[in-house]
Write a protein that binds this DNA or RNA. Structure first.
Lengths: 223, 223, 223, 223
DNA sequence: CATGAATGAGGCTTCATTCAT
DNA sequence: AATGAATGAAGCCTCATTCAT
């Protein structure tokens, strides 16, 4: 399922003769991500996507059965890639806390590199009622499973406390990450400054999250 | 997905003479929540809401300017009540950690009592692009502010560590809570058993979240 | 092609307050018959029907699920009436040959009075592949059955020869009638002159058909 | 409905080098007949025809200007052959009644041998509004003319009564035949049994039709 | 000849909203 | 206050046809 295709082309309206079948398909997917991110799934017309891709809208229906299938394809292929990356990290041999930091950094950097992808995943897919379709629930479940495995690894290795439910801890960690991303996506928290500032900010946030997750906010010896 | 969409009111098509203006208005709002929870905002027709409320659909426009206003009214009135409750808790004098536990319990119990309300708030309002409208951003902001104030109180009182950014901590806490709610709403995690089991489960989750939030997952003395 | 498309009602854009729900529905059906007769089912746009009926095209969908349902409703209601008339004649006590003459006259007069109805029945319904749907096949079957019963009555009464298969005779009779109607509808045979001429012509044809049907074309004593 | 749409040719996607221009063209026509018979003209996509023929749909436009031309070509070439056969029979020197029997047998056997051809001719060409186009009206007219000539021959030879209008008699004869065919095509009348039974049935029907046509259904000496 | 990617006009249908009663 | 008939803008989708390769 995971077909993580790095489409590296920036679409122009002028036809580029060298493109093959797959590339045109990706062109449409990229355009759809851009438009979905800008207007939302329901607010996006198929013709908007086609215009963004620089093609006739009829062509969309050569590659996708309908508008819905575009969205679910984005989910399958893009989320799939992300999921693989997370699972690779999770399966690593680094200390559990380092792996969690890597996941957090992956998520936050993902947003920085491909904000539209993340925006669509977060707003239109993950939260939509479409999200409740089995295949997609399962995909989210796999993500949670991967992280939970890291937590259990940490507990087994004596790195994490064993008196805490791994599932709850996973919820806490991923929920926090998700909330940060959503806030960034929606612009609740606006970050001023250039790319360097953003990268620095993301790192700070990731480290802050992990610090609390690891050591808690209570004063040492408190509680 | 948990069957959380049962109508909480059984309307009949026969007019009930005793109802006044306000009651009919609420009837529509309740019906809208039920239908939005079931079908989503975009998937809900005005006629669906009217049928659920047992009235003619033209009548909806006596009470609300348009469909959009129904949603924002739900937001204002229902979210408003929730927000006030949270702010009341936040303004209390109990220890910061107790206040956070109360907030968590409030949220989780809210889901248990009125799953449709929470579902609509979470899926259709909070996450929608409407969320980025100033009034509603402000409302979410107020919620974050209230919780952040609790965190700062805890830091000021020496209850919480001061070397952690209060904003990040707030994100972590609310994000975790939000994620749990979303998972419950979408049925990622299914809870078997009767109402007692659910209540117990919610309490366990709330306490687990707080425990990590306070003391971290790392082994004492570890790191 | 015979001018068979005169609207049976002259719609105006001004609403006629006296019309009730049923009348508006019939207005649409009548308009549809006119338009289907003129342009064929596939060539008729829903907006054409609405314009012919003097209403907004959206209103069509208050009364009918879709375009297809308009056609099948025409079939059910109009063909149903015709079928009843034929069955009434068939169940009569007149000599079989008189009853057959009455059927022929009914059919031919029906064409004269409501050419559009007949045209749609003949061209768009009876012959279409839609015709092969069970309900409609059965309806045509009922027509054949009614006529076949008359033939059998005639045989039982000693009026008709018993050495001929009643089914084949029915085919012959109805087929001939049908072919005449189709030719008239399609204008293969054009009839000059006024209404009197048409009526006279139809009578001639009906009597000619019956004469052959009864006595054959072979010279007396021939064969 | 009788399953009469089995492809009579099994095309493969692999090119067959031996085929020349004409063969590929016929391949398309045969495929079109199969598809038109199955789905009707309007319900048949050009791509359906191409798939049935085992070629790319673009190639259809090398052989035919458009979809419409495919249908009219079928009409011209297939109906043309049938028309010639009928005219040959009609021009013969056999007794008129024998010639009519031959025509009836030709038609009924044609259906038996090439049900799809007849189905398309009957349903899509003859009855369509296309039928009212001059060239095609003329073709049907020629058929009627040929049969009418036989009837007149019979009258001139003293074989048929002269007091009956030859046109009406022709309508009766061809209409009956047509109706039988249509019923067979649409499956109103289902014939059980093997090929032998069908052939026998067709012969019976043809003879029955002719018997009535010649001698009438009225009891000898009756009327 | 052959392919099938590309085009875009055209039509059906939905549904929020208005309005006469 | 209540009804639901009426309106029509908007958008999805189909599919015949063209065209570059």
């Amino acid at each position: 399922m995971p077909r993580s295709s790095e489409s590296t082309q920036q679409q122009t309206a002028t036809p580029e003769p060298g493109r093959g079948r797959t590339e045109k398909r990706d062109l449409i997917l990229d355009a759809a991500i851009t438009v979905f991110a800008r207007q939302g799934y329901h607010g996006a017309r198929v013709s908007d996507i086609a215009r963004e891709a620089g093609i006739a809208y009829g062509l969309v229906y050569h590659y996708f059965k309908n508008k819905e299938e575009i969205l679910s394809t984005i989910f399958d292929e893009r989320w799939g890639g992300f999921l693989e990356a997370v699972e690779t990290i999770a399966a690593g041999s680094a200390p559990a806390s380092d792996r969690l930091l890597s996941v957090a950094a992956l998520v936050l950097n993902g947003f920085q590199l491909r904000p539209d992808w993340v925006k669509v995943l977060v707003l239109e897919i993950q939260r939509s009622s479409r999200f409740s379709e089995p295949a997609q629930l399962r995909a989210v479940g796999r993500l949670l499973d991967a992280v939970e495995r890291v937590v259990r690894d940490g507990q087994a290795a004596g790195e994490f406390r064993s008196d805490i439910d791994a599932g709850v801890a996973t919820y806490l960690f991923m929920g926090a990450l998700d909330f940060v991303i959503t806030s960034l996506v929606l612009g609740v928290k606006r970050i001023e400054g250039g790319e360097q500032d953003q990268r620095a900010y993301h790192l700070t946030v990731a480290q802050g999250l992990l610090e609390i997750f690891l050591n808690g906010i209570a004063k040492e010896g408190g509680d």
